[in-house]
Computed example of a mutant assay.
Amino acid sequence: MRNRTYHRFAEVNGRQTFYREAGDPGMPTLLLLHGLPTSSQMYRELIPMLSDRFHVIAPDYIGFGHSDAPLRQDFDYTFDNLAAHVAGLVDALGLESYILYMQDYGGPIGFRLFTQRPERVKGFIIQNANAYIEGVGDAPKSVLLPLWENRTPDTEKPARHFVSLEGTKFHWLVGAKDSEAINPDNWILDQALLDRPGTQDYQVDLLENYKTNIALYPEWQAAFRQHRPKTLIMWGKNDPFFIPPGARAYLGDLPDARLVWLDAGHFVLDENAPEVAAEIKSFFSYPRNN
């Protein structure tokens, strides 16, 4: 069935990695990379809207969603390692080329894939995923800068609040045009996974490791200029985490990119999935699979 979404697992580097799959594998592949504090569930409504034109793959990173979630003493929670497992899934599924849809954490994971194997990446869809220092808002700075400077129980407290129920709910609701249009299942389901024993410990590890992404911004920007991937930017303009100057900054390195502003916050799909799907289909205009 064309619009059916399948829920599958693949073994990657000895770990079970969950992914959602829909559409004809003969069509161009969209690789949907999720953000914090969620998982591939953030794409559950968008996937069937795209599956008539694309082969859609949406993985859960190790430690997220339905993928294996080893404790921090059993797994090195870094963005390098998360990206390595996504690359391993790409290889396990035999994906020779794909368009990257990146939101939040999906940016640093996707841009690592891009700089490592740029020939495979046929385009970017960037949705509130940052690659420029001017795009980092005061909200994440207040949490992350003290943690990066000196990790102590006191500097960890704001990071742990980031992945508490209050913080998770805030991620989903902040900047929304109509908060009643945001499904509360989002933060309730996400938090149930975040509250598993040991999970918030490694989530703080990842928030500390986010500084490695900032260090890679110049390398990513140089790769944008060198390879000029076809780029669609869909940005929730009310996002306090990744602010509008970060969206506009891409145009300096990718002048042919299309930038679409959405009246939304950090997450946009609950209110704007049909518009996002239409923009993707129009911008990456492949023939319909009949």
Score class of each variant (00 low, 15 high):
38 T>D: 02
25 P>S: 11
75 F>W: 15
33 L>S: 06
82 L>S: 03
28 P>A: 12
52 D>N: 14
38 T>G: 01
72 R>K: 13
27 M>N: 14
70 P>K: 12
58 A>D: 05
53 R>K: 12
45 E>V: 11
34 H>E: 06
61 Y>S: 04
87 A>N: 06
33 L>V: 10
26 G>P: 01
46 L>H: 07
77 Y>I: 12
79 F>E: 00
65 G>V: 10
67 S>T: 13
72 R>V: 13
63 G>R: 08
77 Y>K: 09
68 D>P: 03
53 R>N: 11
64 F>N: 03
68 D>V: 10
24 D>L: 02
63 G>F: 07
25 P>L: 13
24 D>P: 00
54 F>Y: 14
75 F>D: 06
75 F>C: 03
62 I>M: 05
87 A>D: 10
28 P>I: 15
66 H>P: 00
45 E>N: 14
84 A>R: 13
72 R>I: 15
49 M>V: 05
30 L>C: 09
44 R>Y: 01
42 M>K: 04
45 E>I: 07
38 T>R: 04
35 G>T: 13
78 T>I: 09
54 F>W: 05
57 I>Q: 05
65 G>P: 04
46 L>S: 07
75 F>N: 01
76 D>W: 02
79 F>A: 00
72 R>Y: 05
76 D>S: 13
58 A>I: 12
73 Q>L: 08
78 T>Y: 04
74 D>K: 11
67 S>Y: 03
66 H>F: 15
61 Y>F: 15
31 L>W: 06
79 F>P: 00
43 Y>T: 11
27 M>L: 14
84 A>S: 13
50 L>S: 07
41 Q>K: 13
58 A>Q: 06
85 H>F: 13
42 M>L: 15
29 T>C: 15
33 L>W: 10
74 D>F: 11
76 D>R: 14
70 P>E: 11
62 I>L: 14
36 L>F: 15
28 P>H: 12
56 V>L: 04
47 I>E: 04
35 G>N: 11
53 R>V: 04
80 D>Y: 14
59 P>T: 14
71 L>H: 10
82 L>V: 09
60 D>C: 09
45 E>C: 02
77 Y>N: 03
42 M>R: 06
72 R>C: 00
49 M>S: 10
55 H>S: 04
38 T>K: 04
87 A>F: 01
31 L>F: 10
45 E>A: 11
37 P>H: 09
43 Y>V: 05
67 S>R: 03
33 L>Y: 07
42 M>Y: 08
39 S>Y: 03
76 D>H: 12
62 I>C: 03
40 S>K: 04
32 L>I: 14
81 N>Y: 04
73 Q>V: 12
41 Q>L: 12
59 P>Y: 11
43 Y>L: 06
71 L>K: 09
47 I>C: 07
49 M>G: 00
71 L>I: 08
84 A>W: 01
76 D>E: 13
25 P>C: 12
76 D>T: 15
53 R>E: 02
41 Q>H: 14
65 G>W: 06
88 G>N: 07
83 A>N: 01
84 A>Y: 01
24 D>E: 08
35 G>K: 11
33 L>T: 08
51 S>N: 00
60 D>R: 06
60 D>K: 07
51 S>Y: 03
78 T>G: 05
55 H>T: 09
69 A>Y: 01
57 I>V: 15
85 H>W: 01
26 G>N: 14
75 F>R: 09
38 T>A: 00
49 M>I: 07
